[in-house]
C-alpha cells in the first residue's frame, strides 16, 4: 500500500530523494538466499587474495551466516550476523583452531570486513531515518556504460542520482552519491566520500534476475585512497528454499553446510 501511495505521489509530483529511497528500500526481495561467494581482494601492490564463501541469508540480509571454504587457511571459519532494529547487531565468529566462538563489536562500522574494501557499514542496510536524501539529477542517460564493470548496461537507460547524507549517526562517510535505475530502482553505481569530502570508495553493482527478483550477482569496490579493489561474485544463487530461523544459531557455525 505504502508503495502505491509513493508511486502515485511520484507520478503527480516530481519525486523527492526520500521517496526514491523508500522505493529502493521497498523493492521486493526473496525470503532467503543461499549462494556461493567468490571474493577477490587486490591490494595496491597487485597482490590478489581469493576466498570462497558459502552464504545463507534471510530477511533481506538481516540474518546472515557465512562459512569460509577456501583458501585452506581460512577453511572452517564462519561468521554469523543478526541485525536488530532497536539494539546493537549481533556478530559472531567461529574459530575452529581455538574451538571458540567470539563476539565482534558492532561499533566498529568503519572497519574493513576481512581485509576487503567493504566495511561493516557498507554491508549493513541503510536506515532511511538516519539519512537525508536528495535527488541531484534525474533522467540521466548514460549510454557510454562507464559506470559499470564491463560496459554491459543498456544504452539509453535513465538514472536518478541520489545523494544521501548521514544524519546524526556515526558514519565513516560524509555522503554517498548513488546512480539508481529509474525503472527498477536498482543501485548501479555509488560513490562514497570520506569525512573530508574526498572520494573514498567507488562501488559498482550487477544483478541477476531470478524468479522476478533482481539479486546482486557482482559487487566491485575500489578504494580510491588505498588503491585497492575488491570483487565479489555471487554464484549458485538459490532463493526461497525455506531456510529456518534456527539456522542462524551458534551451533550451526561449527560445521560446514552440506551442499
Amino acid at each position: 500500500m505504502k508503495f502505491l501511495i509513493v508511486l502515485f505521489i511520484s507520478i503527480i509530483f516530481s519525486m523527492t530523494g526520500e521517496e526514491l529511497s523508500i522505493l529502493m528500500d521497498n523493492r521486493e526481495s526473496p525470503n532467503d538466499v543461499s549462494s556461493e561467494l567468490n571474493m577477490e581482494i587486490t591490494n595496491k601492490k597487485g597482490r590478489v587474495r581469493k576466498s570462497k564463501i558459502k552464504s545463507i541469508s534471510k530477511d533481506n540480509n538481516a540474518k546472515q551466516i557465512l562459512w569460509f571454504l577456501s583458501p585452506a587457511d581460512d577453511k572452517g571459519v564462519s561468521y554469523l550476523k543478526i541485525e536488530h532494529d532497536n539494539q546493537d547487531d549481533e556478530i559472531r565468529l567461529w574459530l575452529p583452531g581455538f574451538k571458540k566462538i567470539r563476539r565482534i563489536s558492532s561499533n566498529k562500522k568503519a572497519d574493513s570486513f576481512m581485509g576487503s574494501d567493504l566495511s561493516y557499514e557498507d554491508m549493513t542496510s541503510r536506515q532511511i531515518k538516519d539519512y537525508t536524501f536528495e535527488i541531484t539529477n534525474s533522467n540521466i542517460v548514460l549510454a557510454d556504460g562507464s559506470h559499470t564493470n564491463d560496459n554491459t548496461d543498456t544504452p539509453g537507460k535513465s538514472y536518478y542520482i541520489l545523494e544521501s547524507t548521514p544524519n546524526g549517526i556515526d558514519s565513516e562517510y560524509s555522503r554517498h552519491v548513488t546512480w539508481v535505475e529509474d525503472d527498477t530502482y536498482l543501485t548501479i553505481k555509488e560513490e562514497s566520500y570520506d569525512k573530508n569530502g574526498n572520494l573514498l570508495k567507488l562501488k559498482k553493482f550487477k544483478y541477476q534476475l531470478i524468479d522476478s527478483f533482481n539479486l546482486v550477482s557482482e559487487i566491485f569496490v575500489e578504494n580510491i585512497q588505498k588503491k585497492s579493489t575488491t570483487k565479489l561474485v555471487f554464484s549458485n544463487l538459490n532463493i526461497n528454499t525455506g531456510v529456518k530461523n534456527k539456522l542462524f544459531q551458534e551451533k550451526n557455525m561449527k560445521r560446514l553446510p552440506r551442499k
Binding site: 571459519v77 574459530l95 565482534i104 574493513s112 581485509g115
Partner: peptide, 18 residues
C-alpha cells in the same frame, strides 16, 4: 598453524592486513 590462521583471520575482521 590453524590457530595462527585464525588469529590472522580475526585481525582482518577489525584491522587492516596492510
Amino acid at each position: 598453524r590453524e590457530k595462527i590462521n585464525n588469529l590472522f583471520f580475526m585481525y582482518s575482521m577489525s584491522g587492516d592486513d596492510d
